[in-house]
Nucleic acid binder design. Structure first.
Lengths: 232, 232
DNA sequence: GCTTGGTTTGACCAATCGGTCAAAGCAAGG
DNA sequence: CCTTGCTTTGACCGATTGGTCAAACCAAGC
């Protein structure tokens, strides 16, 4: 089949370096065997992961099909399966690769910083991630909604440890009178909830708000809420 | 090979007005034809919808199978299809039937009541629904996450109208100096987000909190947040 | 017992699913 | 030119999907 240069019937429309594949594990592993990864492999694996993110975040794992991912990546199904051994492999690569990025803002809440400012900037960073990485947010939302079958253990070990640590830090700030008293765990949950809501439930929010951009008023609203809640 | 008549390869020409809808929509319509519904029909349709809610809320629409719903309802697949013409019919019946219930707490925010108390009790009622009806919450979460294909129009008409009305009410309360100033729309979103989070992301929250019951501390936390945010 | 009308089921179907495979395409070095 | 090794594909497989169908089941009225 003489596949000319750029026939792309429904080729990758655009979405430029939408998500190259930072720590997404796009490049780490060779397609097969133990050899080193070709440049073409690195690129295609990144393209595939981007398409997979698109589809998985829209339909969840079980609702997604390899065929659709392949089409959206501009590949044939067998060709895609040449780069990733299975549907599950793509999903796992995405999840584990993104988990770190996703949790990072919490990790960088600084014990040495000014308490209120640290938390406010955590909120800001989190909201920013929802705005710039909505697909990633929805991917996690889907995974958790369906019982977190692939990452349940990570949640109850690594994530729990991190949250407990930061909750203790916040508690110590409150005990020192540098923040108003509240339940630290629920405070953290509220930040996750509020910020991710704007990505995960975007359709609903846009439907209700009409033309106005939801992300316009959100930062101010959050700052107001958390200032009033945490300022002593 | 007695197979032949029925030329129609596939197609459901009719699809009589959306499925029933009293409460959960379990009983109103007869399974077939125009006759009145038998008691057995009423009961089985309710049983089926309950099983369907269980499955749909766990796996989303596309991830769910008719077979699993049938099994969980204690029926054979053809038997289930005798009561509901299609998978889609079950899903639609559930969604439309539950939408009213879900929105109801907002509807009953009383313009004549004491502003802060009205909103606090709205929050309480909402959180209570997440605790007692987590499957319903997850059903909606799945639907919205996947773009709200079945209810997009309702969101941008009925729901938008209701939210706009209540947002105006809240704004008037703020203008009258009976509540501290904030963005009413985002305030409402925050209530949806915070309360439903405890149902939709239950696995994550439980993983992080360990043995402690998340629903224990939540009501107090919410009251604190909204008091501090709204008290003038 | 027979009829009637609602109910239940096993067998079956076309479409789609995730995944395999052998064969072919292809660029680059010799 | 030929080899070599990565890349791509059409054809195909068994399993599962949503849905159909004719036949059987079953209680109740005659």
């Amino acid at each position: 089949m003489p596949k000319n240069p750029a026939p792309g019937p429904k080729e990758d429309p655009k979405r430029p370096g939408a998500l190259a594949a930072p720590g997404t594990g796009a490049s780490a592993q060779p397609a097969r065997g133990g050899r080193r990864a070709t440049r073409i492999q690195t690129e295609k694996r990144a393209t595939i992961l981007d398409a997979a993110l698109e589809v998985f975040s829209e339909r969840g794992f079980r609702g997604s099909t390899v065929d659709e991912i392949a089409t959206r990546a501009g590949l044939s199904k067998p060709n895609l399966l040449y780069y990733f051994p299975s549907k599950d492999a793509m999903y796992t690569a995405l999840l584990t690769g993104l988990l770190d990025i996703w949790i990072d803002p919490l990790r960088s809440v600084d014990p040495e910083g000014e308490p209120l400012e640290e938390l406010l900037s955590y909120v800001r960073r989190k909201l920013d991630m929802s705005r710039t990485l909505p697909r990633e947010s929805r991917l996690f939302a889907n995974e958790i909604l369906q019982g977190a079958p692939h990452i349940a253990d990570i949640l109850s070990t690594d994530l729990k440890a991190l949250v407990d640590e930061k909750a203790a830090l916040i508690q110590s700030w409150m005990d020192a009178g540098r923040l108003a008293q509240t339940h630290p765990h629920h405070l953290i949950f509220s930040i996750w909830s509020l910020t991710q809501h704007y990505a995960d439930f975007e359709v609903q929010i846009r439907a209700v708000m009409g033309s106005e951009d939801p992300f316009d008023g959100a930062p101010d609203f959050f700052e107001t809420v958390y200032r009033r809640t945490l300022e002593r």
